Amino acid sequence: MESDRSAAWCGTGEKQKQASHQGVECGVSCGVESVPHSDFECVVETEDLFLLVYGERVTVLQKKDLAAGDPRDFSSMMAENITKYAVVSFAEQGRAAK
């Protein structure tokens, strides 16, 4: 089921990264490429950011740079569309190591 949820991140200069139910626009050295959800190998979410892994690339999206939308909506949308989605909490790992 397609959703109307979307998100936009502030980028360098006037550039923004966009995400929707169709995929994510990721910055590359020569501009922006649209990456469909099916091309993502995995997504890792931490307290502060999202790591989107596709091909031989990783795109880092900081939650604090979100310009439109809600990180929780983006998280839900990505988890619904990408099989390998992991939430990592470093605070829990730190406590376990003590």
Results as ranks from 00 to 15, higher is better:
M1Y: 03
M1T: 05
E2C: 01
E2N: 10
D4R: 08
R5L: 10
R5H: 05
S6M: 08
S6K: 12
A7W: 11
A8C: 03
G11R: 02
T12R: 13
T12E: 12
G13N: 06
K15P: 04
K15C: 15
Q16L: 04
K17P: 00
K17H: 12
S20H: 09
H21K: 11
H21D: 15
H21Y: 11
Q22V: 01
G23H: 09
G23Q: 06
V24N: 01
V24P: 01
C26R: 06
C26V: 15
V28G: 07
S29T: 09
G31Q: 06
V32G: 04
V32T: 13
V32W: 12
E33R: 15
S34C: 11
S34W: 09
V35Q: 06
P36W: 07
H37I: 04
H37D: 04
S38F: 05
D39W: 09
F40R: 05
E41L: 13
C42I: 00
C42P: 02
C42W: 05
V43L: 06
V43F: 07
V43M: 10
V44Q: 12
V44Y: 11
E45M: 08
E45A: 12
T46V: 06
T46A: 04
T46H: 07
T46M: 05
E47F: 12
D48S: 15
L52C: 14
L52A: 14
Y54S: 03
Y54C: 05
Y54F: 15
G55Y: 03
E56D: 14
E56T: 08
R57S: 14
R57K: 14
V58E: 12
V58M: 13
V58C: 14
V58S: 11
T59E: 15
T59H: 12
T59W: 09
V60Q: 14
L61Y: 08
L61S: 03
L61T: 01
Q62M: 14
Q62F: 13
Q62C: 06
D65L: 15
D65H: 14
L66R: 00
L66E: 00
A67M: 12
A67W: 07
A68Y: 06
D70C: 07
D70V: 03
P71A: 02
P71H: 08
D73H: 12
F74N: 01
F74I: 01
S75A: 03
S75P: 02
S76W: 10
S76K: 12
M77D: 03
M78W: 09
A79C: 04
A79L: 01
A79I: 01
A79K: 14
E80S: 11
N81K: 13
I82K: 01
T83R: 13
K84I: 07
K84T: 10
Y85E: 00
Y85S: 00
Y85F: 15
Y85W: 05
V87M: 06
V87L: 07
V88K: 06
F90P: 02
A91E: 14
A91Q: 13
E92V: 04
Q93C: 06
Q93T: 07
G94M: 11
